[in-house]
Amino acid sequence: MDFSSDNLKGFVLALLSSGFIGTSFIIKKKGLRRAAASGVRAGFGGYSYLWEPLWWIGMITMIVGEVANFVAYAFAPAVLVTPLGALSIIVSAVLAHFILKERLHELRVLGCVMCITGSVIIVIHAPQELPITSVQEIWSMATQTDFLLYVVSVIVLVFILVFHFVPQCGHTNVLVFTGICSLMGSLSVMSVKALGTSLKLTFEGTNQLIYPETWFFMLVVVTCVITQMNYLNKALHTFNTAIVSPIYYVMFTTLTILASVIMFKDWDGQSGGSIVSEICGFIVVLSGTILLHVTKDFDKSPSIRSSYVPSSPSLSTRLCSEDEELLKHGEEDVTSSVDFCLRRQELY
């Protein structure tokens, strides 16, 4: 199929976004390591990294990446842009291998190849969006019956999760916090796309800031993003990142694509073969992403792993003390061991 100029711009911006965001993780980690050498580590409540220029370079790099991702939604459909976010994981994994000397396990290489392959399939079969000339057109899409039903369903599910499931099992079931983030995330992406398109039209000479719909979409973006970040932080604080990240990515990406298909009719006019190819590419990307996350700790030192099962509370305390001493000298691989030891001491 033909690759429109807008799809090409969105594709390039999404690639740049992944590159900047993936690189920012490495720069910030190097900044955190430098800061830890002269102050209290961030993991133990220290803020010395705020005076580390390298950390701020990483933060600025991440902001540039997020802005590029925001603009990408103004040009290309969410079906194309959202799955490409997985490429940032590849960038950070490869750079970590060469810069941070973190070995790239063979299975992680396979995960990278799967993400790239799935992304290529999605790009080749990406749908063409109909040209939008005003924010009022987007408003008519957002107020169509099908999408309103989706919005109502999301809001009801979020309220049920927040007021019923969070008090009961929010801190034992990872799906509760990640579910709230993903549901709100699908609405935030639709609003980001609407807002981005409005700003794009404004910069092209057709002022959309005079319409209340533009400001409404901005309000939705702010509300959804704040809610997302709140519950994502809760999820990351409560559960292991290796569990939260792939589950959140799968749920968020799936719901975002579903919302985009309903609101913007991304698949209208596409052949069945193209739709099936996009779904297959999406599944390959998700599989590669999950593989990248579940294999990220395969090369931890066996001696460190052995400390996960101490035979007595006193031995547990001794191992914790040893690991904390290593941390003071900048050893990164014992972070999870210290966390385990602290949790185990609480049991006694």
Rank of each mutant, 00 (worst) to 15 (best):
P167L: 07
S188M: 08
C115R: 05
P310C: 10
Q270I: 11
I283F: 06
L187Y: 01
F159Y: 09
L110F: 11
Y231S: 04
S191R: 04
L327Y: 03
T227Q: 08
S321W: 07
S186G: 13
L286G: 00
T145A: 12
C341I: 08
M114I: 08
K101Q: 12
M263S: 07
S186T: 01
E102K: 14
E129H: 06
I290P: 02
I283A: 15
R108P: 01
I90P: 02
R33Q: 14
L16K: 04
Y47C: 10
A74V: 06
E322D: 10
K200S: 09
A242C: 01
S321K: 14
T206G: 00
S312M: 04
G118F: 07
E324N: 11
I21L: 09
Q136G: 13
V94A: 08
S314W: 00
F239V: 11
S198K: 09
S186L: 02
Q270V: 13
C224M: 15
S245I: 11
A76T: 01
R343T: 12
I27R: 01
I279W: 06
F252Q: 07
L183Q: 00
I60E: 02
G31S: 00
V40G: 03
F98T: 09
P310K: 07
F147W: 05
I60C: 10
L110A: 14
S92Q: 10
G65H: 03
T197Q: 05
S182Y: 03
P131E: 04
A72I: 05
Q208A: 10
G281A: 12
P131N: 09
H329R: 12
C112H: 04
V151F: 13
I116E: 02
S17D: 09
S191K: 01
L161Q: 09
S38K: 12
L110G: 05
L16F: 14
C181K: 03
D266V: 02
V225P: 00
S260A: 15
K28S: 13
